[in-house]
Amino acid sequence: MADVKRKPKPHYHGHRDRLRERFAKGGPDALADYELLELYLFNSVRQGDVKPTAKALIAKFGSFAEAVSAPIERLIEVKGVGPKMALDLQIIKAAATKLGQESILGRPVLSSWTALLDYCRTAMQFEGIEQFRVLFLDRKNRLIADEVLGRGTIDRAPVYPREIIKRALELESTALILAHNHPSGDPTPSQSDIDITKEIVQACKAIRVSVHDHLIIGRENIASFKTLGLM
């Protein structure tokens, strides 16, 4: 009786175990961006080779962080990425944002400034449209709420001082930190940024609410109105 030929093992046989072992021993720094992404994609695709998909995502978006921050409609443009995988990728961004928020919620943010900047960067750094976020603080400068009060286009997010005042009164907030992103990547304040900040500061003075700072989140850096002497 002739021997039955065994089907050759795929080239990626054992690759998942090896990648997991490298991560277990060396952590995320032991892996390239595409490998870290690939490791996560094992959860979306139970069998098969996801390395080409991971590499394609990095090639399109530039980095791990930019890939997981991309909107679903852009993610599914990548070969091998369907709606489920795109949603799975967005869960990473949501989890990272939640972790950052937990690190500052209920704590005096002025003494946890680095954690605050890290959180704002995680939440807004790679957003494709402008969003205007307001961090509401209590009398001890502890974060009590973090809300996006304006979403707009690639270069403008409409925000209305009266809406900020309304929420500050509802939350009994005594101080604010303003933050918005520049999808262009350049955090330099525009004249409209300066003008709306002045309006908000003046409106807040009327109800004895302090505005500690206005942060503009770019791709690499964060601009602080306080540091720049603009408020």
Rank of each mutant, 00 (worst) to 15 (best):
19 L>C: 02
142 R>E: 15
173 S>E: 00
59 A>E: 10
209 V>P: 01
16 R>Y: 13
11 H>V: 08
177 I>F: 06
92 I>Q: 03
139 R>K: 06
19 L>I: 07
52 P>K: 08
175 A>G: 13
154 I>N: 07
86 A>V: 05
86 A>S: 08
141 N>K: 08
65 A>K: 11
129 I>A: 12
140 K>C: 09
105 L>M: 15
50 V>H: 05
33 D>T: 02
216 I>Q: 06
161 P>F: 09
171 L>W: 08
210 S>A: 14
202 Q>M: 06
201 V>L: 10
212 H>L: 10
219 R>D: 04
9 K>E: 10
83 P>S: 08
50 V>A: 07
160 Y>G: 06
142 R>V: 09
228 L>M: 15
5 K>Q: 08
29 D>Q: 10
117 L>S: 12
87 L>F: 07
218 G>M: 10
231 M>E: 04
72 I>Q: 09
227 T>W: 08
138 D>C: 06
179 A>D: 01
134 V>I: 08
30 A>I: 03
196 I>M: 10
108 P>T: 02
90 Q>E: 14
88 D>W: 10
45 V>F: 11
135 L>V: 14
127 E>S: 15
90 Q>V: 03
78 V>H: 06
11 H>S: 13
73 E>Y: 15
203 A>V: 06
155 D>V: 11
150 G>K: 11
48 G>A: 14
198 K>F: 08
92 I>W: 05
189 P>C: 04
191 Q>A: 13
1 M>A: 10
231 M>R: 05
36 L>P: 03
137 L>F: 01
55 K>Y: 05
78 V>W: 11
106 G>T: 04
217 I>Y: 00
138 D>K: 01
113 W>R: 13
213 D>N: 14
130 E>Q: 15
146 D>S: 15
170 E>M: 15
128 G>F: 05
222 I>F: 01
217 I>V: 15
195 D>R: 07
50 V>N: 05
122 T>Q: 04
22 R>M: 12
203 A>W: 06
227 T>C: 02
66 E>Y: 08
176 L>E: 11
111 S>T: 15
168 A>H: 08
40 Y>L: 15
150 G>R: 09
195 D>A: 14
19 L>E: 01
37 L>F: 00
112 S>E: 14
26 G>K: 13
28 P>K: 01
188 T>K: 14
192 S>H: 14
18 R>G: 11
178 L>G: 09
19 L>N: 03
189 P>H: 02
73 E>V: 09
172 E>D: 14
171 L>A: 03
157 A>V: 10
79 K>Y: 09
209 V>C: 03
45 V>P: 00
206 A>H: 07
65 A>W: 13
158 P>V: 10
38 E>S: 00
175 A>D: 04
72 I>P: 00
203 A>I: 07
159 V>M: 04
138 D>Y: 09
111 S>A: 13
52 P>A: 12
126 F>Q: 13
82 G>L: 05
51 K>W: 03
77 E>F: 15
24 A>D: 12
149 L>S: 01
166 K>G: 07
18 R>K: 11
100 G>W: 07
75 L>N: 08
206 A>G: 03
104 I>C: 12
214 H>P: 04
148 V>F: 04
27 G>H: 07
118 D>H: 09
131 Q>H: 09
180 H>Q: 14
219 R>T: 12
69 S>Q: 08
118 D>R: 13
124 M>V: 02
